[in-house]
Design a protein around this nucleic acid. Structure first.
Lengths: 238, 238
DNA sequence: ACCTGAACACCGTTCAAGT
DNA sequence: ACCTGAACACCGTTCAAGT
């Protein structure tokens, strides 16, 4: 496979080299193929050697998240809260785009990594500097949810990354689908872009994402302008 | 453990019994503890006996999803699109509430199960009957994303279900957090309800969920009223 | 014909033995 | 002191042998 370099001479293992190799492995063969044993094999070392640089697999995943999230660029100037938030979220989308496993791994973590905290801090700061109250900022951050990281959370994951792709439906099954789920069939028929899944990949594309993002940003601006507060009666609601 | 009933006399295995036991196991000990071997043990049978009723673990998970999603009640009358959609989504939230693993498992499936299709068909139907064009319905379904099932997709999963809960941050770490991520700290300080995670569980509660849902529904109504269309220039965008 | 124990090819991690 | 092979306790699934 690799050119015949002397394995004993290869670059010494380091945390960074381990993390970069793990990201490459997940990119190339999917997150479910990422095992400590397989990663060690890719690096040409014995599995136990990895445990010098990461405490366990959890810490490895944390490190991978920070490698990817750390790559989110920050827009330089502050062009108003809306453009700042929009730009940062679309930058996150760009950074995560080539790492389909990243969102799923982030979700499985128990807490934020430093790079994630930095990203959230920047977005929160844009809201606050744009005149959002702490209360409203709190709510809009929740409303954004995983869209903070540039991804619409669809009901199903991207079938592209699926290890066991569904076989294409036979025509009879499609007919049955139309009969039993007429509205689903109508929608699937109208959007000629995908294979029949209504809320699947294929359509989590830029336009679709920006539609939902702008809808939310419009709503945020309206609430900000109205001086919205969560507890008209006085008490903190959440 | 169990009363001394004759194991040979226990109810014969059936697909339904297998699925119900799997749901109970995932509810009780978490989805990561659900293995074919452990499930077989709970049922007092040899692991291979399960493969009579489900082809493999994937099909087992599909079946579990349908058990839970099949429990979503449907509001009887049609009280206008907004109340119908709102009611159905909150019913989904109720049905999934006691099965924290369900959303994650649904997301990992490659396609919809029958019960999921039925749920989506009902929601789509409410939009269409409420005067939404196919085009707009398609977009708002995407904008809802996993909120269709009653859950705001937060950046992190609920730490409640986490197998390795984070130890509470020492005070020094909290101080550092405030210094490095001032906006995160401000938000965390203002919301006294949780342990410092900004976009974690603890706050995905009913009010928070309904805030985001109503914000979206408001936006949908506005677009419907304006006769919004995705392609002002003529072409189908997505 | 039916059922099932052993086996296969994995996994993350521990630990004692070797250098 | 450092490194690592073997081992432990798992996993989903195959398959041949037993009834």
């Amino acid at each position: 496979m690799t050119p015949p370099t002397d394995p004993a001479r290869r670059a010494p293992l380091s945390r960074e080299r381990v993390l970069r190799a793990a990201v490459a492995l997940a990119d190339g063969t999917g997150i479910e193929a990422l095992s400590m044993r397989r990663l060690a094999q890719d690096l040409g070392v014995v599995p136990m050697a990895l445990y010098k640089h990461v405490a366990n697999k959890e810490e490895l995943l944390d490190g991978m998240v920070d490698v990817v999230v750390g790559g989110i660029g920050s827009p330089d100037l502050d062009p108003g809260w809306r453009a700042a938030v929009r730009g940062r979220i679309l930058a996150a989308r760009e950074a995560l785009r080539s790492h389909p496993w990243a969102l799923q791994v982030i979700r499985s973590r128990n807490g934020p990594t430093p790079a994630l905290l930095a990203h959230m801090d920047a977005v929160i700061g844009s809201f606050r500097n744009g005149g959002f109250s702490v209360d409203l900022t709190h709510h809009v951050m929740h409303a954004l949810g995983s869209r903070l990281l540039g991804f619409t959370q669809e009901v199903f994951d991207a079938p592209a990354a699926a290890p066991h792709p569904r076989p294409p439906e036979p025509d009879a099954a499609l007919g049955q689908l139309a009969e039993r789920y007429p509205y689903v069939a109508e929608l699937a028929g109208a959007s000629a872009h995908d294979d029949g899944s209504v809320v699947g990949r294929g359509c989590d594309d830029q336009l679709e994402f920006e539609f939902a993002l702008d809808l939310l940003l419009d709503g945020f601006e309206r609430l900000r302008h109205e001086g919205w507060t969560s507890a008209p009666a006085g008490g903190q609601a959440c």
